[in-house]
């Protein structure tokens, strides 16, 4: 999922300054899992905004706001209400905000679309409702087959591909001792699999053209351009 955190309320109020009538759009996908923008959080924020004197035009929460297939059927019937609003506040990832803006444009409505969240990465849930970690940065050329299923691009603070830096102590990363050194994890995993010899192979510098932004995915052809 895409991890999100809530922007501080004063920052949201500043973004909405001058807009009296506000519609709040959440996301019952990732933002719901992060407890930042599901139906419940949308209702709670709408309440807070009302308490600050804002008029809430409507609240809506598509199942996945980043997916036009899910967002359009929810927002299209609300087009007239969107026209009433002076601003839309989206509690979703950066993608959800931009899909919402694109839909308003498609409906022929020019209205500011603001975000109430910060997107903080591709996150994998370890403890439901409590803890998620970043494990993949979508580099476009996955090397997990070579690294025991542990990603050094993401989990090593320096993204090293040919083994650890010299700084790990007691198995912990020099950059943050609360974190395991990714390369020690990889080594242990490969040792358990009896495959440490495979780590001796030189890994060439990554082809970052595969991660050159913004990428477009042609789903039918399985092609990235």
């Amino acid at each position: 999922m895409i991890g999100t955190t809530k922007k501080p309320f004063p920052e949201i109020m500043a973004a909405l300054e001058g807009y009296q009538k506000v519609a709040v759009v959440g996301c019952d996908g990732c933002a719901k899992v992060c407890l930042t923008g599901g139906t419940d959080e949308v209702a709670a924020l709408a309440q807070e905004l009302r308490a600050q004197g804002k008029e809430i035009v409507f609240e809506a929460c598509p199942e996945r706001t980043c997916n036009v297939v899910k967002a359009d059927p929810v927002l299209a019937p609300l087009a007239d209400r969107i026209k009433e609003a002076e601003a839309l506040l989206v509690l979703g990832c950066g993608g959800a905000v931009q899909i919402t803006r694109e839909l308003t444009e498609k409906y022929g409505i020019t209205v500011p679309v603001k975000t109430g969240l910060n997107s903080v990465g591709h996150m994998d849930t370890l403890i439901g409702g409590t803890l998620a970690v970043e494990q993949c940065q979508e580099c476009g050329d996955c090397i997990l087959n070579e690294t025991g299923g542990i990603c050094p691009v993401t989990k090593c603070a320096k993204g090293l591909l040919n083994g650890p830096c010299g700084g790990a102590e007691d198995g912990k990363c020099e950059v943050d001792p609360s974190r395991d050194c990714a390369w020690i994890l990889i080594y242990k995993r490969m040792a358990a699999l009896g495959e440490t010899a495979k780590l001796k192979k030189f890994t060439a510098p990554k082809d970052y053209s595969k991660a050159a932004k913004p990428r477009v995915l042609h789903i039918k052809e399985g092609r990235v351009a």
Binding site: K158, L160, N162, G167
Partner: peptide, 22 residues
């Protein structure tokens, strides 16, 4: 190279395009 987090410009963008072996 030492990580930026430990230095005096912790807000900089870390490069680490290649590693020491590369």
């Amino acid at each position: 190279g030492d990580h930026l987090k430990l230095g005096d410009h912790p807000t900089a963008k870390a490069v680490f395009d290649v590693d020491s072996v590369q």
